[in-house]
């Protein structure tokens, strides 16, 4: 089976240690996590992790079931790229001097629709939101001019299927004995 990129969304109770419990499921199978993002979800008290890995679907299916069965994991699901809308954010710190108006670097920044977040005498911080290949493209084009610091966030993703977390949680809550 071919390896593909999968985005795994894991919804958990908001408690200490659950991230560890989740990542153990990856490390014990020696799966490299390409990116991870953690945040709140639309429901109070439920956190979500977005984890990107490249593996066969067969393995991802088993992995996600093993994550899903962890107590305090509310739900775990996986998607391929076409089933989600996703973004990453990248920040670039460059010397302010390279961005002189009309210069080549300035044109690159403009062409990429990157945002200027902060301008200091010595350096400027640029922001570009997009898919990895886009933020990477900007990185490569700016590289000859010198990038002083670079960081890219983990992928965050919203799923296209319309089943809401709220309905899933309600369904699960109905199962609990009153």
């Amino acid at each position: 089976m071919r390896k593909e990129r999968f985005t795994i969304s894991i919804f958990t109770e908001d408690i200490v240690g659950i991230l560890n419990r989740v990542t153990i499921m990856f490390t014990r199978r020696k799966i490299n996590v390409e990116s991870i993002a953690a945040s709140e979800s639309e429901i109070k008290g439920i956190h979500r992790y977005t984890i990107v890995i490249t593996e066969t679907e067969d393995l991802v299916k088993k992995l996600v079931l093993q994550i899903d069965k962890q107590v305090e994991v509310v739900k775990a699901v996986y998607h391929i790229d076409s089933e989600i809308v996703y973004q990453e954010i990248a920040l670039y710190k460059v010397a302010t001097s390279i961005l002189a108006s009309g210069g080549k670097a300035e044109r690159i920044v403009r062409a990429h629709n990157a945002r200027v977040l902060s301008v200091e005498i010595e350096f400027t911080v640029l922001e570009k939101t997009g898919h990895k290949d886009e933020t990477q493209q900007l990185f490569e084009e700016l590289e000859p001019y010198g990038i002083l610091e670079f960081v890219r966030s983990g992928r965050v993703a919203i799923t296209k299927p319309m089943r809401t977390l709220d309905s899933i949680v309600k369904g699960l809550e109905d199962l609990v004995e009153k």
Binding site: T12, E13, V71, E72, V73, V74, V169, L172, E173, L175, V176, E177, K178
Partner: peptide, 8 residues
């Protein structure tokens, strides 16, 4: 304890 939503 009677149960919790994150454990079926």
């Amino acid at each position: 304890f009677k149960g919790m939503r994150s454990y079926v």
